[in-house]
Design a protein around this nucleic acid. Sequence first.
DNA 1: TAGTCTCGGTCAAAGGTCGG
DNA 2: ACCGACCTTTGACCGAGACT
Lengths: 414, 414
Amino acid sequence: MYATKLNPSHIEILSHTEQCVVCGDAADGFHYGVRSCRGCNAFFRRAVTFNMSFTCRRGGRCPVDKNARCACRACRLAKCYAVGMDKKAVQPKREVHTSNGSFDQNDPDYDLRLGGTRTSPSYELSSDMTSPGSAFTPLNINLARFTPAIPPSPPSDSSLIVRQVYDFMEQKRRRRAMLCGSLEEILSEQEMTLRHPATSEDFTTIFQAQMVLMFEWVEKLPEFRMLCDHNDKTKLLRAFALKYMLLDNVYHTYELGFRDRLVLVNNNYIVPGVPINFKGSDVVDENQMRDIMFGEPMRALINELVLPIGSQNMLYGEIMTIRRIMFWNPGNVQLSEMAKALSAEACNVAMKELQQYLISEGVDDIEARIKFILLLLPSFTTHHKTMYEIVRLIPSFGKMSDWNQFMDDVLSGV
Amino acid sequence: MYATKLNPSHIEILSHTEQCVVCGDAADGFHYGVRSCRGCNAFFRRAVTFNMSFTCRRGGRCPVDKNARCACRACRLAKCYAVGMDKKAVQPKREVHTSNGSFDQNDPDYDLRLGGTRTSPSYELSSDMTSPGSAFTPLNINLARFTPAIPPSPPSDSSLIVRQVYDFMEQKRRRRAMLCGSLEEILSEQEMTLRHPATSEDFTTIFQAQMVLMFEWVEKLPEFRMLCDHNDKTKLLRAFALKYMLLDNVYHTYELGFRDRLVLVNNNYIVPGVPINFKGSDVVDENQMRDIMFGEPMRALINELVLPIGSQNMLYGEIMTIRRIMFWNPGNVQLSEMAKALSAEACNVAMKELQQYLISEGVDDIEARIKFILLLLPSFTTHHKTMYEIVRLIPSFGKMSDWNQFMDDVLSGV
DNA sequence: TAGTCTCGGTCAAAGGTCGG
DNA sequence: ACCGACCTTTGACCGAGACT
């Protein structure tokens, strides 16, 4: 190979000339660490980005010079490496850049064009219409005044907690739609009523929907968006997933007014002491499942979460704060320094906002209220383990891949 | 704002994290108000000085880290703003450095430059802050200013079509999340790639997700909210459901660049002439299913929808208009008088807005464009029948209750 | 005065494009 | 289908000016 024959000092000398050290053509600067020509530059980049590999048909000693460089790609690439071209200097793919297509252009007037006609000019047009639609003119006027944003968004400069309260109502609507089995059900505007005793399948169903909602929620957290490390994000989310599910279901139970059972967000329910028959269900160990879902763990969960919350008039903003605090306190999870700093800061902000929120809601005795909320947190951590024990026994729950890793991270928060 | 009460020690921790808060690379000091690396510094400066604006091709959630920061400029710039980089801290153009020392007096910024030494105006803000840790004051301010809505919402007074374009990007994100099987998949921000040949189960899966999204979409139509009669709503929605599904899947195929197949929104695909084995699948009549899914009907669907749309550069606004027109033209459905009037009006408005939209997008030959779109409509009606024939053969599709009534209404539009 | 910090500008070297 | 001339974007580096 060339690499064994080329002395590094030779490359250095060669590099000081104006010649490509790969093929001897006129060089055009340094590329990937060595002085080289445009052709060899592009050739090396393509070979690396597309992860190409070639085989020489003539024993790997083909000459690589200005004229013959295209004769054997294997030897050309080998020489690129031999003279020291650095594979690591090839960067990850960038954005594609097409000349056509009006949606991805850098046209500085693009925003202007969109924003320039912002007072819904379409309706002004319809007034000078002489079309058959004239019979609908009154309707037309009404429509023009119509503001379709329902329910109204909060002012965009409001604090995160206010936006989260708004988003939570939105999430509940969406959750309901996702858990409906049919169009008819979505359309029927009334709240679904209590349905059946819950089975193990319900956990799979609601978790699937809640994962999506959790993801949408978490993406709206400013501090989460500031995380750079993908690992941090994954770990935080895994550790949080079952806590999110627990809080959501507990609060749903509270909202429906039940205190003796856990009503899942799809309105199927679990009453401790009233086990269902798991026949035909997809569970690893029926007895164990019965012990957890209908025995002491569930009874304790209801006593320590559903009852306390039920005894207070919990506000949406308080629930959202509990979510935030739980998310940013993943337990025994290894995070980067940056993530640690961000989560500490996020908790801080969440608590400050809670205080402001309680003041603005006119709550008396704010200190006691905050203490109450903080005291709930350990209970969530404890009973989150009950969730874990349940889903662990549902094989179909493991359809969500990386099951083992997921469970490890879930556990780290237990 | 609340953020002004941030505990300084946390900010200090954050600031001593020697990472760029945009991409996580090694930071090099504060730039435009946040700790950032050289690259993000230069990138932000260029973007602001040249007044660039980008549009993400993937819905505005691309990862922005050390390795991927160049992959999507829209998301990189969005994150720059998100973490608080201050546009106003970018100074006006300085004198251009030329070798002969002269500069261009025709430069529009020439007067401005002579006008005075306006040095970093953003720091005027920090002057009235008497807090400790003055070096970290900018970060403090920026957290307070943080607006988590990314991509930014359109102005609330914009026309329906503009809002729908924004919502569509949001819907695509949500659709993706709903079709992901695991947290990991949702988190991996890259676009899913082509997966397997589609089976009948895929139709059940994607329809379930699309029903929810369709419902959310339709609820944002002002005219739909004005409907009083519940029957009208149900009929319109039933007649529309499969058309919505068809359009969405056809457009998804177009966006991925395929012309020889239908790529479903979960990225499983159907190639005419390349049938799969339905063994073990839940189909009424395997042969009939094969004939439809891989035979002439699918081939015709691709020829008459995927190819024409593929031949044009279809804009989001155009797709949204097709949706609206299809929704308000349910075919042979008995509606109340009010609903008839509303749907006529809704079509009217949709067409007017389309015209305005095409003007604002700078499309040439708008008449031809509109004609093209209108000519697509009958094809959608025709091939919507293909969808019907397929789902009719999938018993599990009928889990959505009121199956017979649903199918009747679906058929009325065929 | 010397040191430091963050501006803007510069240009070698990345990446992408597209006719041959 | 590959090549490579050509173009755009990136980011390491530098000097300027303000502040300490």
